[in-house]
């Protein structure tokens, strides 16, 4: 039996083969909606407040990660449940957590070109100065993993592909619109501002604003990172305990 890190490497490569021909189209699809939003919210709305534009840029990076993490991961977990892939992996001497981490890792790799493209195109359109913090290499994976964990749970709990797709989209849009992701916190009612602290997208957007643009935020970066890490651990634990694996 191979050690965990070897299993993870092999299984991640296997999962990445799912996009060997479709990754370009997948990236384009994940970038189109955020870039369209950036254009609409900045150029056509005519808002040139740098703080608002910063929210628009990082909020749409969160949208990209939501589309990759929640929508696509939920669909993928539904697919591997229904086409026998989980049984195939379970028949091999690999840990259950290996296949979960490999799947989430593959989606992280796949989300990076879309996030970078959204950042590059958005920055060019909005004319914002970047102030990249090295912690971005921790923040982006943490956001991707925590949102992928959420997507995996949807894919495991839904009864069919249509339900998965609907719930994935609904939850993505809810997280995107609920709280200071796309607009500053002072534009929301107090109750929404408070409740938004329950949403992972709030911490994702806050962390991105701080590591991409150096914008100050009501939530310190360390808190964002700690909360995102906590969400990732809890959600992956739930996935590990719910997945239909070896006789459950």
């Amino acid at each position: 039996m191979q050690p965990l890190h070897v299993q993870l490497f092999d299984l991640t490569l296997i999962q990445l083969t799912n996009w060997r021909w479709s990754w370009r189209a997948s990236v384009i699809v994940s970038v189109i909606a955020p870039v369209f939003m950036i254009v609409v919210l900045s150029v056509f709305a005519g808002d040139d407040n740098p703080e608002v534009l910063g929210y628009v840029l990082t909020g749409n990076m969160v949208l990209t990660l939501l589309m990759e993490g929640v929508n696509k991961v939920s669909g993928h977990f539904m697919f591997i449940r229904t086409n026998g892939t989980l049984d195939y992996f379970a028949s091999l001497p690999v840990y259950r957590i290996s296949i979960i981490l490999a799947t989430v890792g593959a989606f992280l790799v796949l989300s990076l070109p879309a996030v970078i493209a959204t950042l590059a195109i958005g920055t060019a359109i909005l004319g914002l100065p970047l102030n990249i913090n090295p912690m971005i290499i921790v923040v982006v994976p943490l956001i991707s993993i925590s949102l992928s964990g959420l997507g995996a749970i949807i894919g495991l709990l839904a009864r069919n592909p249509a339900e998965t797709s609907s719930f994935g989209l609904l939850i993505s849009m809810f997280l995107f619109g609920f709280g200071p992701v796309l607009y500053p916190v002072d534009r929301f009612p107090e109750i929404i501002s408070t409740l938004s602290l329950l949403s992972p997208a709030t911490y994702a957007a806050s962390a991105l604003r701080q590591v991409v643009l150096g914008m100050p935020d009501r939530i310190p970066l360390t808190v964002d990172i700690a909360v995102l890490a906590g969400i990732a651990v809890v959600l992956l634990w739930v996935v590990n305990s719910r997945i239909e694996w070896r006789g459950r």
Binding site: M1, I14, N18, G84, T85, Y88, S91, R96
Partner: peptide, 21 residues
């Protein structure tokens, strides 16, 4: 959980589960 998988090769009825390898 891993004991059986270390001794058996299992060919399911449904064919090959990995479509893109």
């Amino acid at each position: 959980p891993l004991y059986a998988s270390q001794h058996i090769g299992y060919m399911p009825q449904s064919g090959m589960a990995l479509n893109n390898v």
